[in-house]
Design a protein around this nucleic acid. Sequence first.
DNA 1: AGTCGGACATACTCACGGTACGTACTTTCA
DNA 2: TGAAAGTACGTACCGTGAGTATGTCCGACT
Lengths: 214, 214
Amino acid sequence: MPPAPLRRRYSAATKRALLDVAAAQFAEHGYAGTSLDVVVAGAQVTKGALYHHFAGKQALFEDVFARVEEDAAARIRAAMTSAGDPWDQARSALRAFLDVVREPAYRRVVLQDGPAVLGHERFREQEERTSRALVHEVTERVLVASAEVVDPAMVDTFSRILYGAVSAAGEQVASAADPTAETLRVECALGVVLDGLRQQATAGLRLTDPVAAP
Amino acid sequence: MPPAPLRRRYSAATKRALLDVAAAQFAEHGYAGTSLDVVVAGAQVTKGALYHHFAGKQALFEDVFARVEEDAAARIRAAMTSAGDPWDQARSALRAFLDVVREPAYRRVVLQDGPAVLGHERFREQEERTSRALVHEVTERVLVASAEVVDPAMVDTFSRILYGAVSAAGEQVASAADPTAETLRVECALGVVLDGLRQQATAGLRLTDPVAAP
DNA sequence: AGTCGGACATACTCACGGTACGTACTTTCA
DNA sequence: TGAAAGTACGTACCGTGAGTATGTCCGACT
């Protein structure tokens, strides 16, 4: 059965087809539950094509991972631009994230399989360029607007902790029986935390690096 | 009462040997990187023994996972009993957790491979009985000591968020170039968050469920 | 003393990731 | 313009490793 000559000419199309099918498979069945035979069959090609475009299963997953993360970050960023006040920006970003984290694809690829497949090292590298960068950005604006003294190292530490808190909040919302109700609770709880920071801000908080400080 | 059946004792020994070897392998090479052939060879038995004691690779991992988590929770709990004030308890528990999370075994088995292998569902079930229960306990004591009104549903939401924050903090410490220095920053950052809560507590915080509230 | 069942051992299957090699089509260049 | 080089796959195959089917030994109970 001679394959359609049309497909041969556009290799970018086959690569995208592979990525599309792989993304759907990884999202639905997870990394371990996805067979490359199924992927290539779904993309109407063979393993030769797959291994021509990707170094292996892990590399394929990494590309899918990056696409999912970038897409999510873009949407959160879009939902954030409107507000002017850093606190409002943080709040709208949180809301957008709580929406994103409810999608099965993001949960499966990024939160569930991501760390195990990529390893902590590569996982963090990937995050650094997308969602973590976003959280870092928002955190920095909030902290600068709140504290009198803000050390860059502390911004990093703070943003990572907040990122963990927000991720857990997202997981909580996503797995709740009533996600809408849980969203309210989560926003309330995080609101209390943020209010706590805000109160300290008005009291003249100084966020210095305890290591560098004399 | 006649002495313990000899048969059973030998059987228990082989099972423990399998668990020991498996724990070491999973901790060092991860779930996917661990071969059952290596495990049974290390335990001086064959696959027949393994599949007699465990339903499969995943079940074996789950037992290892439970052991690692229970061990960690026990150590944290032990480090916590001394202090009397809920805030101090929370602080010492945090410190103990930051130690635990720096161990490769815990990082690999629980944080990295856990969610992917067990799935979110079973992962949460396992957590519920150990570390999460601990965090929930501490959170409840702190909140009850702080707020005038505390809704149980909010305690759950709060503890999950705090758990995520602490986990991220642990990850941050574990992967830092200078873990000791990063520990100081993390404790400082989390201290600020806790102080924020404490200030609101003295101001008469009421932590009601926004869903149930009229 | 039989025999029943738990605790393994042995040998095998099969799915799946990865590789080696061949081939058609395209581009390059003398 | 025609041959050489390179691209973009297809085909056939291998090794590994999880899981299974079946046999067997031996302590325990009747």
